[in-house]
Amino acid sequence: MSRESDVEAQQSHGSSACSQPHGSVTQSQGSSSQSQGISSSSTSTMPNSSQSSHSSSGTLSSLETVSTQELYSIPEDQEPEDQEPEEPTPAPWARLWALQDGFANLECVNDNYWFGRDKSCEYCFDEPLLKRTDKYRTYSKKHFRIFREVGPKNSYIAYIEDHSGNGTFVNTELVGKGKRRPLNNNSEIALSLSRNKVFVFFDLTVDDQSVYPKALRDEYIMSKTLGSGACGEVKLAFERKTCKKVAIKIISKRKFAIGSAREADPALNVETEIEILKKLNHPCIIKIKNFFDAEDYYIVLELMEGGELFDKVVGNKRLKEATCKLYFYQMLLAVQYLHENGIIHRDLKPENVLLSSQEEDCLIKITDFGHSKILGETSLMRTLCGTPTYLAPEVLVSVGTAGYNRAVDCWSLGVILFICLSGYPPFSEHRTQVSLKDQITSGKYNFIPEVWAEVSEKALDLVKKLLVVDPKARFTTEEALRHPWLQDEDMKRKFQDLLSEENESTALPQVL
């Protein structure tokens, strides 16, 4: 008996699950189920560990084997000379395990699969056993689809999209007709009724959600790893209520002995410091949205989908001078704002400069500016000194954290500008005749005249004003913003236009 009217009423009120309206889709043409990776026989039982391990490696599972009696060998002398080797079968990115008779397991190899009674669906509900069930008529011709799209860092995100009359449910929550939600590992998919569980979705590319604290899981769906560094790992996640993407940084307390840091400095109150950081608001710094204190720290951040500045300059790639100017102007505005709010970044580098898009002209935002507030000064500097390429001379020669101030950030900005303009770092371990530390503390950077011949004198002058060993003589952010190279009204107008595109209400910060 159909429950279409009941569920449609529920759909009209929406769902609290991570779902959002989605535009129309072009329906895929039908194809045989076997060619799409559906096993030839149905099963109602969950797999054992041996079955799972075989399939996850990209080899055929026991459900897909063919009797050897149906095959015969071709003698080598009868092999056609022009026969080309077969292409290897792509490894599946996800697996659906059937929970009921009449449904088959599915190895997801393609990027898009339609499910329903219509014969054009890649996964067609046409098993005779299924057709005899009382629920068969409640399934729509095109009930739902599972697909994946390219996300940040060229990774993939799996989604389920509801197109049914009676509802598609993920972990008992209604997706909603015309809406989608991301699928995470071990999600249970039910059709027409929330208790009519048909599939379990296994994402073969992500970790299980159960490793994360419950308070975090209640608000966010964790997904793929976006990156990792000395101070922690960053994962893509989704807000459950809105389906908006965020980035979540995970900082290990054990790695940084944060408990010991608190004992050594009783004034170090991470929760208080995070609340201060959350109040920071500038178009060129990453917004801190939320914070969870569990076995590790979880910092929920605004997501930038254009990648890191590092990706644009790695491998001796240089940027156009006009692009360097647009990016560097924004970096200076961001660091100036942090300094005005009493925050020294201490870890400025291309990896911590994020881009809003893949376009050459785009907004940038500074991230990882609050680590000293979370990890403690000593722990952070011990970590950073392991990779000193961007560290100021006074940091390398000081004991502990004494003896330096916000000028350290201006040195790091000078190193970043040098790399963007030239395509190579000013200080490098590859210069074996002088140690990296000695290069930095003496201010002897690697200047290649033929490379810098293409760079304007004004740009080079600003680099020199920032890479000054004496912090008292080094340019401040205010002085850098007043430098002739940055007195470019076309560049500032472009920045204002980019801000307006992102948010019509965002105004250009005042600069002296």
Rank of each mutant, 00 (worst) to 15 (best):
Y113W: 04
S19G: 11
A264S: 05
D162Y: 08
L174W: 12
A17L: 05
L174T: 01
M46P: 10
R3N: 03
E188P: 06
S55R: 09
I160L: 10
A17H: 14
R240W: 06
L268Y: 10
Y220V: 07
Q10W: 14
V234G: 05
L191I: 02
L268G: 05
N110D: 05
G167A: 04
Q29R: 08
T26G: 03
T205P: 13
K241M: 04
S252H: 04
S19A: 10
P21T: 09
Y136D: 11
A158G: 11
Q20C: 02
T89V: 06
Y123I: 14
D101R: 15
V206A: 03
S187N: 01
I160G: 04
E87T: 10
S120G: 09
S120I: 11
I74K: 13
Y156H: 06
G227P: 00
Y72W: 15
I250F: 05
S210L: 14
V7C: 13
T138I: 07
R117K: 02
K224L: 01
D162S: 14
G176P: 14
A230S: 04
F169H: 00
S55H: 06
G167D: 00
Q10N: 12
D162W: 00
V7K: 08
E219D: 10
N196S: 13
E161N: 07
R148T: 15
E161D: 15
K249L: 01
V170A: 14
K253S: 04
P88V: 07
A261E: 06
G259Q: 15
E271V: 13
L129W: 11
S55W: 07
T68C: 03
R181Q: 12
M46Q: 05
G116V: 00
S16N: 12
D208L: 12
A9M: 12
Y156P: 06
G229V: 08
C121E: 03
L174H: 08
L129V: 10
F147L: 12
V200C: 03
C243L: 13
S56W: 06
S164P: 00
P152L: 14
I157P: 14
A104Q: 07
L96F: 12
S39R: 10
T133K: 06
Y72G: 14
G14Y: 05
S42K: 07
R180V: 03
F238C: 04
S67G: 05
V25H: 11
N154G: 05
Q11M: 04
C243F: 11
K179E: 02
F144I: 00
G30S: 06
N112G: 11
Q11L: 12
Y156V: 14
E263S: 06
Y136I: 04
E4V: 08
Q29Y: 07
R181T: 03
D218H: 12
E149D: 06
L106N: 11
F144E: 01
G165L: 15
E263F: 12
